[in-house]
Design a binder for these strands. Structure first.
Length: 269
DNA sequence: GCGACAG
DNA sequence: ATCTTGTCGC
């Protein structure tokens, strides 16, 4: 698929102020509320370990309808100046397509400007994807960003695809409570603070415990989930938990991670 | 000046 | 992100 908003395609040649200005513009176009066609209850990870449990009303049976297509996206680096994006499309927990692309990394990693470093490779990857995604899951922040335009939001808005951001660490914002020792399935809201453009107290995402060990001295940190585009914070957390299948990372992301590793080894061009 | 920062 | 063995636990 191609960008719906070419003017938002990340341009690594912009200077820092221009990048930040573009992010503010993107945040204006972003929709942080549910506005998608997919049925959240049909977004499951795996038939065997998925945690989705449909109500037994007797009249349903995977009505062979149109289960939503969820695409997991991740990046890896081949060189110091080449990144590879890996996309894995799933429907009903089954991989239906994989796509990838290699693109130059023109700028270094700068907190808050990640999409300008990895966005090019990601969009190139989507260009190679033939299925139409109902939801894209990115590795990084969405609304949990200084200017509410993290990677998931930037790419989601550019492609105008519903998206969520899944990060392993908090970029900014303030958890409303301790995020330590949460039980599997728990979530703690992340509110905007002085570092975020949103009004103080706005819920911009959630710390989500997708996996946790039941007993002793072994802990798993929660995922940091935030809306990318056309998805509200609560729904973003719901979707991530729905896509989780016993691992910390939701299936789309886990498979994309895996695919990226394979590409790194196989496509050592 | 100090603190803080996705991948 | 990336560089990497062993190690603890179910």
């Amino acid at each position: 698929m191609e960008p719906v908003h070419p003017e938002f395609v990340p341009d690594a040649s912009l200077d820092r102020d221009e990048m930040e200005a573009l992010q503010r513009e993107i945040a204006t176009e972003a929709v942080f509320d549910d506005d998608f066609a997919l049925d959240p209850s049909r977004v499951c990870a795996d038939r065997e370990t998925g945690q989705q449990e449909l109500g037994a009303t007797g009249s349903e049976e995977s009505a062979a309808g149109d289960a939503p297509v969820v695409v997991g996206v991740d990046q890896a680096f081949l060189d110091d100046d080449r990144a590879v994006s890996a996309l894995v499309a799933l429907r009903d927990g089954e991989v239906i397509e994989r796509a990838h692309a290699v693109a130059p990394t023109e700028i270094p990693y700068i907190p808050g400007l990640l999409s300008f470093r990895e966005g090019g490779a990601i969009l190139a990857g989507f260009r190679e994807l033939s299925v139409e995604p109902d939801l894209a899951v990115f590795d990084g922040s969405g609304r949990i960003h200084f200017r509410e335009a993290g990677l998931a939001t930037h790419v989601g808005v550019t492609l105008d695809v519903p998206s969520v951001g899944v990060a392993k660490n908090l970029l900014c914002g303030r958890p409303v409570a301790s995020t330590d020792g949460l039980a599997e399935g728990d979530r703690v809201a992340i509110e905007a603070d002085g570092d975020v453009t949103a009004p103080d107290g706005t819920v911009i995402g959630y710390a989500v415990q997708s996996r946790q060990y039941d007993s002793p001295n072994r802990y798993v940190n929660p995922l940091i989930v935030s809306p990318g585009h056309r998805v509200g914070a609560e729904t973003a957390a719901d979707l991530v938990l729905s896509c989780s299948a016993g691992y910390k990372l939701p299936e789309p992301t886990r498979l994309a991670d895996q695919y990226a590793d394979d590409l790194k080894a196989e496509v050592g061009d």
